[in-house]
Amino acid sequence: MIICIVNNLLKNTLENNQNQLYFYGYGSTSKHIINQIKNSNLYLTGVIDKNYKSENKKGIRIINLKDANVLKKEYPIIISLHNHYVDLEEIQKDLLELGFESIFSIYEFLNQFPNFQLENNYWYLKDYKYDVKFISSFFKDLESLNNIDKIVNFRTTGIIDAAPKPNLEKVSLINIINSFDNKLNVLDGGAFRGEFLNFLLNSGFKVNQYTAFEPDIKNFKLLEETEFKNISTQLINKGIFNENIDLKFDNLGNTSSKRSDDTEAVASFIKLDTFNFKAKTNLIKLDIEGDELHALEGAKKLIKKNKPILVISTYHKPEHLSDILFFIDSLKLNYKFKLEITEFSTFGVDLYCY
């Protein structure tokens, strides 16, 4: 059942406490929102963070979690974290044990205060409406259908208790690949430093050919230094797109490197249908910061020829949850679909086509 109700509990709690509140987490999301709070009628009393000592930073009161006992527990506290790695329920549990009474996610805050903006939206767009019926029509298994409800429920409300637990071990993907008899010839789009290959090897799969595309020069140099035992490799310092082209690209040296108009740096991108592979590709993984659909458009011939297993990240843009499904289905290859939540706060939402 999907809950699409955003109540006014946070606003009411703020009004009862003279618009005073705390943040939990002094990271990039928190700092971005703090800059906006300065021009509002809200009063940030402090930021709690277990990784910082208690001190004042640029006029902001930072409180280490160990010192949080002295704070006013009736003030609302916003978990101001927006990333893959944070278990909101675990943080909520810690704060409840300290006596805090009103704990909200950053998404609940943004839902009730629409003038505030995230620095990196990823899947979060306030006014985006998911076509649940359309998305669900592609899936036959109960697990995927339940995951769709959980994703839309959490993304619509932001309520911490609605945050789905991820399957960090990617059990569904392992089961799909296990049903595949041949050695794997892997195309890794957004290879970073070879994490997907390590996942496959650690899961007991045999990889014959590993073809990796990584446009970030810093990441690519580390990828080149990786030792690949008994595996044929092609390592390409390029991104993947629907044409062969040079585009502006942020070489951040981390997992968030992506195309950006706010930089003068440039990276080369390739259309997969023009690439000469050493072996018949039977597994394609794409996690390329929102360019997944562009990459698929440039790989039509490859996919139609080989019908590989597809592992596609769908969280970077909310519309990808439906648009990528529609595109793959339009190829008329009779793919089966499965959806797995693999990271916290519905960041890792992987579509498996097999």
Rank of each mutant, 00 (worst) to 15 (best):
residue 2 I to M: 04
residue 2 I to V: 06
residue 10 L to I: 03
residue 15 E to P: 01
residue 17 N to K: 12
residue 17 N to H: 08
residue 23 F to S: 08
residue 24 Y to D: 04
residue 27 G to V: 04
residue 27 G to L: 06
residue 28 S to V: 07
residue 32 H to S: 15
residue 32 H to I: 02
residue 36 Q to G: 05
residue 36 Q to D: 05
residue 44 L to H: 10
residue 52 Y to P: 04
residue 54 S to I: 13
residue 57 K to D: 14
residue 58 K to M: 14
residue 74 E to T: 07
residue 75 Y to L: 13
residue 76 P to K: 06
residue 77 I to S: 00
residue 78 I to D: 01
residue 80 S to N: 11
residue 84 H to C: 11
residue 84 H to M: 14
residue 84 H to L: 15
residue 86 V to G: 00
residue 88 L to P: 02
residue 89 E to W: 00
residue 90 E to P: 03
residue 90 E to F: 12
residue 91 I to E: 00
residue 93 K to L: 15
residue 99 G to R: 09
residue 100 F to C: 01
residue 102 S to T: 13
residue 106 I to E: 01
residue 109 F to R: 04
residue 118 L to W: 05
residue 123 W to N: 15
residue 125 L to N: 09
residue 125 L to W: 10
residue 126 K to N: 06
residue 136 S to V: 00
residue 138 F to W: 04
residue 141 D to K: 08
residue 147 N to R: 01
residue 148 I to E: 01
residue 152 V to C: 06
residue 152 V to K: 04
residue 159 I to R: 08
residue 160 I to M: 01
residue 162 A to K: 00
residue 162 A to E: 15
residue 187 L to I: 11
residue 187 L to R: 08
residue 188 D to K: 09
residue 194 G to D: 03
residue 196 F to W: 13
residue 199 F to G: 04
residue 202 N to R: 13
residue 210 Y to P: 00
residue 218 K to I: 14
residue 218 K to V: 14
residue 218 K to T: 12
residue 219 N to F: 07
residue 229 K to C: 12
residue 243 E to T: 10
residue 243 E to Q: 12
residue 261 D to W: 06
residue 271 K to Y: 11
residue 277 F to C: 09
residue 283 L to A: 00
residue 297 E to Q: 14
residue 315 Y to W: 09
residue 325 L to C: 07
residue 325 L to G: 02
residue 329 D to E: 07
residue 330 S to F: 03
residue 332 K to V: 13
residue 345 S to Q: 08
residue 346 T to L: 09
